[in-house]
């Protein structure tokens, strides 16, 4: 069995990760908090290569919610990158940007939906949008490669213009197109 059966990753020709990176630059993002996901691997490489970005690899995703709040206190914009399972680790910490009315944009690569191989990814993958919305987050989905950039742009704008947690969920159809049917 090949590793890409287990971990959905974008096709090498897909350019939406580069478009997300371009949007992070355009919006002046300086702090990138993340727990890695194969779907974000290329975007993470771009951010790591950028000396104007502080990339912080977290031990658990809720650390990123707290870190983005600290960044905003100090006048810097940040973004949290994670996979859908990580959203479950963030639930109570989302009270911080809600109560303080501060921006908290999240870009989530989905697991546990189209063509999922691992049963453990399904419960949180199935609940990601509902859980975020239950915690007051504005959630938008991108289910085609063309939708990714405009949806991430909207997520960043909504966060920084209206001071709240926001999320783009990038569907597994976008991320793992090569692994369908296995």
């Amino acid at each position: 069995m090949q590793r890409d059966t287990l971990e959905s990753a974008p096709d090498a020709a897909a350019d939406w990760p580069d478009q997300i990176y371009g949007l992070l630059k355009q919006h002046g993002i300086r702090q990138v908090a993340l727990v890695p996901d194969a779907g974000h691997a290329r975007l993470i490489r771009r951010c790591l290569a950028d000396n104007d970005m502080q990339v912080v690899t977290l031990t658990t995703e809720e650390e990123g919610i707290a870190m983005l709040f600290g960044a905003w206190l100090g006048g810097e914009k940040g973004v949290l990158l994670m996979q859908s399972s990580g959203v479950g680790n963030c639930i109570n910490m989302l009270s911080v940007p809600i109560a303080h009315r501060t921006p908290c944009p999240m870009i989530v690569t989905m697991r546990g939906e189209f063509g999922e191989f691992n049963p453990f990814q399904v419960p949180m993958g199935n609940a990601t949008g509902a859980v975020l919305e239950a915690m007051g987050t504005l959630v938008k989905r991108a289910d085609t490669p063309e939708d990714v950039a405009p949806t991430v742009d909207a997520t960043l704008r909504l966060a920084f213009n209206t001071f709240r947690p926001t999320a783009t969920l990038i569907g597994q159809r976008v991320i793992g197109a090569k692994t369908f049917g296995k």
Binding site: R30, Q31, Q54, V56, E62, E63, G64, I65, A66, M67, L68, F69, G70, A71, W72, L73, G74, G75, E76, G78, N92, M93, S95, V96, A99
Partner: peptide, 25 residues
């Protein structure tokens, strides 16, 4: 001062985000 009424477990990471944003303070 930023006194916290919640976000249990997050104080140190808030400090990190703030320290990275304001390296001269």
């Amino acid at each position: 001062n930023l006194p916290l009424w919640g976000g249990m477990g997050g104080a140190a990471m808030m400090g990190l985000g703030l320290a990275l944003a304001q390296p001269s303070r």
